[in-house]
Design a binder for these strands. Structure first.
Lengths: 362, 362
DNA sequence: CCCCGTCGTGGAAACGTTTCCACTTTCACC
DNA sequence: GGTGAAAGTGGAAACGTTTCCACGACGGGG
């Protein structure tokens, strides 16, 4: 319990050799005799020697740390992904510095400045809009290796891991179509601030267009309490034939179900609701939420693996978007479109496909 | 866009002065004339100079980084707290290195080793069991300032921020008692691995003992699918008069509601269910979950503030447990105990107290 | 007019590491 | 028994910063 920690010098002294030898032995980074090897290891053990990472990083110019920037940890989707990054990084001896930007461009910028000041070796991030993100531009300018998650950037010169939001939304659209939903609406929060929402709406609308149907209504709502109810009332006034809602994420989908109930409509008897993300709680509620289950955790760990491998080879992660498999999970909140409103009861209820398991991360 | 970043030396050269002067000016850490002050600032601006944190930390022996260790980010409770830590830390110029231990003692240890190797200035953590946590002991031995969150350690020589789990559970117990629930059970996952669960059971049982009632049944369940159903079936066989369940956290409470439904019992008509934590989704589901709303975010930021202040004064955070206010949120999942089972329908339904708002973090 | 604070300044040492380089030592081989 | 290569070694420089200290200039009071 010395007042200050032992340094490589102390080890050298105790082992009776030079510090260079100690460094070589402890790092396996050069020739060393069996004799000195043993002495050094014994000395290090006895002193409980640990490298000082500052000295190390200062000399080697790498921090063994990767920065993470996400909009928020309150959305379980990002929390899962961060956990994935952290675990995958730990396996390779990398640490994670965490920042969050709360969907705010300015905060994104200052957070990135912090990360860069800490000399992170690379960054994994989700931004509001890849095309005009300041944070992303900073990374490019400073030539810091990075990998996007969740975002699916349009320009192909950046590395990214995500799911194909457009395709996923197409599948939702197709399912709804097959179940007879001819009039559907898309509900989103902060539509303007999320490229994912936009992609999802696009894929969804595409299917409806393909079948010659009217473009789904777009409901952009606020977090303000009551806002959702008002939007839904408006919707049912302008489009009373609406039989399905597609929400841009699961939390919002749950909020929709609650709002519908307060308007005297029940799910799925009167209206079907589909979410997006596949958060854990979606399977616990009643009715079970129909949703697109995305591999958030795997997204994080995959991105971390890509980044770490690139760092070890002293290069950039491979450019281009990697799309991970997702899965349509048919919950109880989705059913056949009610043909006609018969006394507020559902007409038929198809045998719901059993909720399939997510495939394990690999 | 030079190949390597400008150093303090480059700034000194451009400004025509020594590096000591540059350091003094940029850190406001010593006398300097107006003239040199201006020249240095101009030079730093022109070169877009940023301090190298490694050199800085190596010399000053502080990293301006705090380590965080939590069981998992998948539980929104911890995600919120981590977010709180991160935001509060950022305000004071501190960064956060994140690790998670997955409720595993061994992982806890290695995670702590990583944090210590990175020379974090302090640590904020939640451990499985404060009394025999290796990680916690390491912190004490190495004299690294730290602050627990969520945990409520029995020994008073450690700093901690949390809620009074025992008292909160007493309140739940009292509410249940007042609503006529004479036979209740406590449901927990990994009871042995969480001191919080134990505290909650203790407070709950205490109230029942006080009223001369039988000690609530303790159901310890697994995450394995189906396990909860089996446990509940057993419960209703041994204690058919059970009218209420108190779950050790909200996710589990939701799982209970679902399991009960699959057993043909409805909530709250047949059985009342109360959770713990107050996660956001608890308010969205039907029935709204009765729960203890805890200020997770505030817990994180409060701990961060304590720790940062202590670090700045070069001392340890104040020992003792700080208990933050919590709140009983009376959701729809809790109602009067059914007097007798009359045709599977509830007897009465009291006007549910409106779900009160959480007071904002302060 | 000299002395002595005060102020601003820059050289240099230190923080703990990696790594280059030059120096032994060893040993196989002719 | 010389020669050469190969293997092991430690001194020392460098990484970028903070900070101690010594030095010169400058001014006010005796």
């Amino acid at each position: 319990m010395s007042i200050s920690k032992p340094t490589i010098k102390d080890v050298a002294e105790l082992a009776g050799c030079g510090i260079a030898t100690v460094s070589r032995v402890l790092n396996n980074s050069g020739p060393s005799s069996l004799a000195s090897r043993e002495k050094v290891l014994a000395a290090a053990e006895e002193l409980d020697f640990k490298f000082n990472e500052f000295g190390r990083s200062l000399k080697s110019r790498r921090s063994k740390t990767i920065g993470v920037l996400v909009p928020t940890l309150c959305n379980p989707v990002f929390a899962d992904a961060v956990q994935g990054v952290q675990q995958a990084a730990a396996v390779h001896g990398y640490d994670v510095i965490l920042t969050s930007a709360n969907y705010d461009q300015e905060t994104e910028k200052t957070a990135m400045e912090t990360l860069l000041a800490k000399q992170v070796d690379g960054v994994i991030l989700t931004v509001s809009s890849p095309t005009n993100s300041i944070a992303l531009r900073m990374l490019k300018e400073k030539h810091v290796p990075h990998c996007l998650i969740f975002n699916q950037p349009k320009d192909a010169d950046v590395s990214a891991v995500g799911v194909d939001n457009v395709e996923a939304a197409r599948i939702v659209g197709q399912k709804l179509f097959e179940l007879g939903h001819r009039d559907a609406a898309f509900v989103a929060v902060q539509f303007a601030k999320s490229d994912r929402s936009a992609d999802r709406y696009r894929g969804f609308a595409e299917i409806y267009a393909k079948h010659g149907l009217r473009e789904p209504e777009l409901l952009e709502v606020d977090y303000a309490p009551g806002d959702l109810e008002i939007a839904l009332v408006n919707l049912f006034e302008t489009s009373p034939s609406t039989t399905a809602l597609f929400a841009s994420n699961d939390m919002l989908a749950l909020a929709c179900i609650r709002a519908l109930r307060s308007l005297g409509k029940s799910v799925p008897e009167d209206i079907s609701v589909v979410g997006f993300d596949g958060i854990a709680v979606a399977d616990l509620v009643h009715p079970k939420l129909a949703t697109i289950a995305t591999p958030c955790h795997a997204m994080g760990s995959k991105a971390a693996q890509l980044l770490v491998k690139a760092l070890q080879n002293n290069e950039k992660p491979p450019t281009g978007v990697i799309s991970l498999p997702f899965e349509f999970r048919c919950g109880e909140s989705l059913t056949l479109a009610a043909k006609k409103k018969v006394a507020g009861r559902a007409v038929t209820r198809p045998a719901a496909a059993p909720a399939t398991q997510m495939q394990p991360n690999k």
